Amino acid sequence: MEKGKGVMVGRRWAVDFTDNSTTPSSRDIPDPPGFTRASHDQDDSTLSRQKKGAEANWKVQKAWEVAQAPFKNLLMMGFMMWMAGSTVHLFSIGITFSALWQPISALQGVGKVFEPYKDSKVDLLGPKLLFIALNLGGLALGVWKLNTLGLLPTHASDWVSSLSPAQEVEYSGGGIPLH
C-alpha cells in the first residue's frame, strides 16, 4: 500500500481488512482443508475426560508391567541357584542370601514402587497383590535353597547342644556290599 492511500499497489498477496457490509459472514466461508469447526468447538471437558481416561489406562498398564517384573528376577535367581549347586561354599551362600534379600527389600518398598501410578481412577490392588505374591515366591525359593544347603535349623538338636543330632533316615554308599 502506498502511504496515505487506501489502495494496494504492487503486492501480489494482500488482504483487505476494510469492513464491507456486503461481504458474507464468517459462517459462509468454507473451512480450509484439514480444519473442522466442529472439532474446534468441541467441549473442553470432553477432551480432558478423554485425556484423563487415556492416562488412567496407561497407568494401569504400566502398573501391571511393574507387578510382573519380579517374575523375570525369579527365573534368573532360580537358574543361578541351580548353577551354584548344593554344597556349602561362598558362591552358593552369596547367591542364596541375595535371593533372600531382594524380595525382602522389594516387599518393604511396595508403596514406593507403585507411587507413580497412584490415581483415583486407577485400581492398584491387583498389581500390588501380584507383586507381593511373586516376591513371596522369590523368598520361598531362597528359603528352599537354605534348606537344601542344610543351613536351616530343622531339628531340636540344632537349637540345644545337649540333644543328640537327628538320625539319618537313609544313607548311600558305593563299592562292594559287605555280608
Rank of each mutant, 00 (worst) to 15 (best):
S98M: 11
L146K: 02
L47S: 10
V160E: 06
T87Y: 09
A140P: 00
K112G: 12
S26Q: 11
T148F: 04
L134N: 00
Y171P: 04
F71L: 15
P30T: 01
R27V: 09
S98T: 12
D119K: 04
D123K: 14
V160Y: 08
A99K: 02
V88E: 03
I132D: 03
W58M: 12
M1T: 11
Y171V: 11
S120G: 12
F71C: 06
P177H: 06
D44V: 15
F114N: 03
S98H: 11
M80R: 15
L100R: 01
L47G: 12
W58N: 12
K62P: 03
L90Q: 13
A63M: 01
G78L: 00
A84Q: 02
F71I: 10
Q108A: 13
H89A: 10
T36E: 06
T18R: 13
Q102A: 13
Q61G: 12
F97M: 07
V169H: 07
Q167M: 13
N135I: 02
K118S: 09
F131S: 01
G85R: 01
S48I: 14
R11I: 08
I29A: 08
L163V: 01
L136W: 04
P127E: 03
Q42N: 10
W64C: 04
M8N: 10
S105N: 10
W159I: 10
Y171R: 15
Q68G: 09
S162E: 04
L75W: 05
G4P: 03
T23L: 12
L151H: 03
T87P: 05
L149G: 01
H155R: 07
W64H: 07
F35W: 05
F35V: 05
W13E: 09
S162G: 06
W64E: 02
P32L: 06
V66R: 04
S98I: 07
V7S: 13
T36R: 13
A56Y: 02
M8Y: 09
W159A: 15
S105V: 08
K3H: 09
R12T: 15
L139H: 00
F114K: 01
R49Y: 08
N20L: 11
W13N: 14
S39R: 14
L125Q: 15
G138L: 00
T148Q: 06
K145A: 05
E65D: 07
L125H: 15
I132C: 05
I93A: 06
E55M: 13
D31S: 14
A38R: 11
N73Q: 14
T22G: 11
V88G: 03
A99P: 01
V15L: 14
L47P: 05
F17I: 12
I93E: 04
S164E: 09
G6N: 13
D19A: 13
P165T: 04
V15H: 10
P153Y: 10
